[in-house]
């Protein structure tokens, strides 16, 4: 009896021991991947603290990881350096205007469309929903040639309108909100509001929107990130971003492109600082909101 117990105990120990070893090996592998994920960002931050001369005289391996003391100098250079094409503050301002407006439009109108589809019964309801699902897949590059020509015909290039207004129609956000309403919104609330004499729009704004807060929160994070990171559309719509020299319409990613390709600003310390200033707010926001972001991504993978 005792022998048997011993054998079983050993087997159990072996079993858990091998699992433990496997867990720790995998843990090591994850640590390596984490380092790979963070290394470029770490080097970026370190290089942002160096001056141009320090960067071009780097040689040894160890130097890659030791910070220097020129960060404030780089930031000062960057903020005082304003040319016709490049100014980081204007880049921030333009990006914020476009991103802010389009996020609000995306979230509000998607909620409205989803509410319309979910709550009301009308003839083309199913057809409309299917149409929204179908257009989710069309890549933006496919429509861009016609889009640009059309905007040129309307004289809307070099303005923010074609960058902001299209945000009203965001099929994937509508899709997400419809599924959210399906799972956690009951039509009897709407009926109760009607009996109390609430108008339809007031019902939507004062009752439905607050109830949709979780979905709106997640989707506004995603809409904000997507718009903030967008390089393609502004780059193609803002054909003459200086508008003949009067203003500068470039967004932050476009400023980075300018900094990269212009010969005059070949100050590497400044380039790194500029990239860092573009990236770090996003990273901080991400770390604060990571719980919601990851939950939102995971929802995308759940089969409807």
């Amino acid at each position: 009896m005792s022998k048997m117990k011993k054998t079983y105990g050993d087997a159990d120990d072996n079993y858990t021991r091998s699992l433990k070893i496997k867990s720790w090996v995998l843990f090591g592998w994850c640590i390596i991947l984490t380092i790979v994920c963070l290394l470029p960002i770490y080097i970026l931050i370190i290089n942002a603290t160096r001056s141009h001369n320090e960067i071009i005289s780097m040689h040894g391996f160890g130097e890659l990881f030791v910070p220097s003391s020129h960060l404030s100098e780089n930031i000062k250079n960057l903020s005082t350096k304003t040319s016709e094409d490049f100014s980081i503050l204007i880049g921030y301002k333009n990006s914020l205007i476009i991103t802010g407006c389009s996020t609000i439009l995306t979230v509000f109108f998607s909620a409205m469309t989803a509410y319309g589809i979910r709550v009301y019964d009308f003839k083309i309801k199913d057809a409309a929903y299917t149409a929204i699902l179908l257009v989710m897949m069309v890549p933006v590059q496919v429509t861009s040639a016609g889009f640009v020509k059309f905007m040129i015909n309307l004289h809307l290039t070099n303005s923010f309108i074609p960058l902001i207004i299209p945000a009203v129609a965001a099929p994937s956000v509508v899709f997400f909100m419809v599924s959210y309403l399906k799972s956690s919104f009951s039509n009897s609330i709407v009926e109760a509001a009607r009996i109390d004499g609430c108008s339809e729009f007031r019902t939507f704004i004062q009752i439905a929107l607050p109830l949709m807060k979780p979905a709106i929160g997640v989707q506004s994070i995603f809409a904000f990130i997507a718009s903030w990171n967008n390089f393609y559309t502004p780059n193609m719509i803002l054909i003459d971003p200086n508008k003949g020299g009067t203003t500068n319409l470039r967004t932050l990613p476009m400023m980075l492109g300018i900094l990269q390709s212009s010969q005059k600003t070949a100050d590497y310390g400044m380039i790194y600082t500029c990239i860092a200033l573009g990236i770090i707010p996003v990273i901080i926001a991400y770390i604060c909101l990571s719980k919601f972001i990851i939950a939102g991504v995971a929802l995308g993978g759940v089969k409807e």
């Binding site: 990613p253 990239i275 990236i279 990273i283 972001i293």
Partner: peptide, 11 residues
């Protein structure tokens, strides 16, 4: 979540 354009310039 990092801007692809920044990543391109960084790399």
């Amino acid at each position: 979540i990092i801007t692809a354009a920044s990543i391109a310039v960084l790399f």
